[in-house]
């Protein structure tokens, strides 16, 4: 298989893993969870490096995952008090964790290059070069990892489908039929944390943040059905991967950036042209209503004129 295929496949599987979760985050108003996690993992990396003195991917991922979990659970706890809105909760937690990481580096590692870019953030362009020897067969690591994560996420949302659906739309009703919205929310957030960290390692931060939000938001503009929303988000993720890669090759630019940009363009198209919620459809509907009202008024005036 060619390098291009591997890159597109890595991106597509990453997009699948993320787009399976993204719609629930968008519905729950915590779309920026991915961005929060991308900053909050810093203290985990510092801690892992201090304990094990290495930047080996597995150690780094474990350290990062620990703090990703702390981050999402702390946000959920703050939000759960009902005293802080979810967006403000995100904005309180991740700067604090990042600041902790910066202090850690200042105290223990000021004289080596230890930062997110040189430890956890991967680069999708290098996916074809990173292979793993599994019993004599050479496999592409990022494809394997992201494939497993995507499959696990698919299994998770399949198992929890009803619960996720109910708790995303109506937490009070969920409570009344004895689903615990907190437990479901926590499971979802744990999946987000683990997925984000493994995806950072494979494709870098910006692509993860973008693919978690943008396809889901675009899908939200296109449908009212949850199943359709998830499916459309995954599809947009794949289209962004393929088109973005082609675009990146065309202008010789960053692959992750081009993929994120493609997703943004698709969002723009959805915003304008979505059949139900798009700006054009709305404008047409509004114009039609206005014409109908005018016609009705004219007819009424005509009737009155005839009557007089």
């Amino acid at each position: 298989m060619s390098d291009a295929m591997i890159i597109v496949l890595t991106a597509g599987l990453t997009a699948t893993a993320l787009a399976l979760l993204g719609p629930f985050l968008v519905l729950r108003r915590v779309a920026l969870m991915g961005d929060a996690v991308s900053h909050a993992v810093l203290p985990g990396i510092v801690a892992a490096f201090l304990v094990f003195q290495t930047r080996a991917p597995l150690v780094v991922i474990l350290g990062a995952a620990a703090f990703a979990l702390i981050c999402v659970l702390a946000i959920e706890a703050l939000r759960g008090t009902g005293l802080v809105a979810s967006d403000a909760a995100i904005g309180l937690v991740f700067p604090a964790l990042f600041a902790l990481g910066v202090l850690g580096i200042h105290r223990y590692a000021a004289n080596i290059h230890l930062d997110l870019d040189s430890t956890i953030y991967g680069e999708i362009a290098f996916a074809p070069f990173r292979t793993l020897d599994l019993g004599g067969v050479e496999v592409v690591r990022s494809v394997l990892i992201m494939g497993v994560v995507a499959a696990v996420n698919l299994g998770l949302i399949t198992l929890l489908w009803k619960e996720l659906k109910v708790t995303s739309f109506d937490p009070d009703f969920a409570r009344s039929i004895r689903f615990s919205p907190t437990v479901v929310a926590r499971l979802l957030l744990i999946a987000v944390a683990v997925t984000a960290v493994t995806a950072f390692e494979s494709v870098g931060a910006i692509l993860v943040v973008a693919l978690l939000i943008v396809p889901a938001a675009a899908a939200y503009l296109m449908t009212d059905r949850l199943v359709a929303m998830v499916a459309i988000a995954v599809a947009i993720g794949w289209v962004s991967s393929v088109v973005g890669y082609a675009g990146a090759v065309e202008v010789d630019a960053s692959i992750a950036g081009a993929m994120g940009l493609t997703a943004a363009v698709i969002f723009g198209i959805a915003l304008l042209a979505s059949p139900r919620h798009g700006l054009i459809a709305r404008a047409v509907r509004r114009a039609r209503t206005r014409r109908a009202v005018e016609r009705a008024l004219a007819e009424e005036r005509g009737a009155q004129g005839a009557g007089a």
């Binding site: 779309a31 920026l32 910006i206 943040v209 973008a210 943008v214 990146a248 992750a256 994120g260 915003l271």
Partner: peptide, 26 residues
Amino acid sequence: TSRIRPDAAIGVVLSSFFSLGIVLLT
């Protein structure tokens, strides 16, 4: 203008602009 809520709108703008920035930078 749409049904997108503030947090997702911010997220979309953030990731679009940053992606554009990286493309321009490379």
